[in-house]
Nucleic acid binder design. Structure first.
Length: 271
DNA sequence: ACTTCGACCTGTTGGC
DNA sequence: TGCCAACAGGTCGAAG
């Protein structure tokens, strides 16, 4: 479900309910997510005040004075603002109960997500330590991408989905960005010209920003923290549109597999 | 240093 | 209608 726009939509949705609130209690219904939920979480976080809700790539960070809760939504995770009257669902694995009576509820059917408590020790968590730049920041520019790509033989699509290169570009938006930039997803990253990267980078930024503005992409089950869907799905130009005509040239869009993920592209526009 | 691939899970979809 | 295989928004870590 969540790529960067969906995570950012979630962040914005929960922030006003959660920021400056004291954690009253943590309810763990299951702790076997991708990794076990940090055992100390329900002991260490209650009593702490959530100072800020930030995002690094697809990780959400709930910062307190004594530690940070690192949350990843994996493939199927979501965070909702609930109250006592909301019925607990099958995959509602964790509740963070706040002093304002609201509950930050973590749901994740596939349990590919994670919830890790890191005590403040001045170190960056290993999961965050080797991440590439934020795609919407100045640090992510065509010079940077060009330099990073020179030694790479991997396909450009795989390359821009590598979180060590740039964070937050998942399968949907990688497909969309390459279409907008007119680049064939199979092209070797190392063989792409500087001029092409100069085109690609703004396309990535634009696709992500537009998706954030639309509240993310809802394919089947993504909702924001109030349960509302995102509206970017209707703007998708290639993702999920195999065998349909290209919006630009009417050529039938083609689907291939790259690194066990589906890639859809226009053989003509991205020739 | 780079690339590929299995693994982690459940739910939904499409073909027979 | 039912069954089963294939696939789904992610990404780590082992192996080549």
């Amino acid at each position: 479900m969540p790529e960067l726009p969906e995570v950012e939509t979630t962040r914005r949705g929960i922030e006003p309910h959660v920021e400056k609130q004291r954690v009253k209690e943590i309810i763990l219904r299951r702790k076997d997510l991708r990794w076990p939920i940090t055992p100390d979480l329900s002991k260490d976080m209650p009593g702490q005040t959530i100072e800020s809700v930030s995002r690094r790539g697809k990780y959400l960070l709930l910062q307190t004075k004594t530690g940070t809760l690192i949350i990843h939504l994996g493939m199927s995770g979501s965070l909702r603002i609930a109250t006592q009257s909301h019925i607990v669902g099958k995959h509602d694995h964790v509740d963070i109960v706040l002093d304002n009576k609201k509950i930050l509820r973590f749901n994740d059917p596939r349990r590919f997500g994670c919830m890790l408590w890191q005590k403040s020790n001045g170190c960056l968590h290993p999961l965050l330590a080797s991440l590439g730049p934020e795609p919407l920041s100045e640090n992510f520019n065509s010079n940077y991408l060009y330099k990073k790509s020179r030694t790479r033989n991997a396909a450009i699509k795989t390359f821009i989905m590598d979180s060590k290169i740039v964070v937050g570009v998942g399968n949907i938006y990688a497909n969309e960005s390459l279409f907008l930039a007119g680049i064939n997803p199979k092209r070797s990253a190392g063989k792409i010209s500087k001029a092409r990267f100069a085109k690609l980078v703004p396309c990535i930024k634009q696709v992500l920003q537009n998706a954030i503005d639309a509240g993310g992409t809802t394919l089947r089950d993504f909702t924001d923290s109030d349960g509302k869907p995102g509206y970017f799905a209707q703007s998708l130009l290639v993702y999920g549109r195999k065998d349909q005509p290209c919006n630009v040239c009417k050529t039938i869009l083609k689907e291939i597999r790259q690194g066990q993920r589906s890639t859809v592209y226009c053989p003509k526009c991205q020739g």
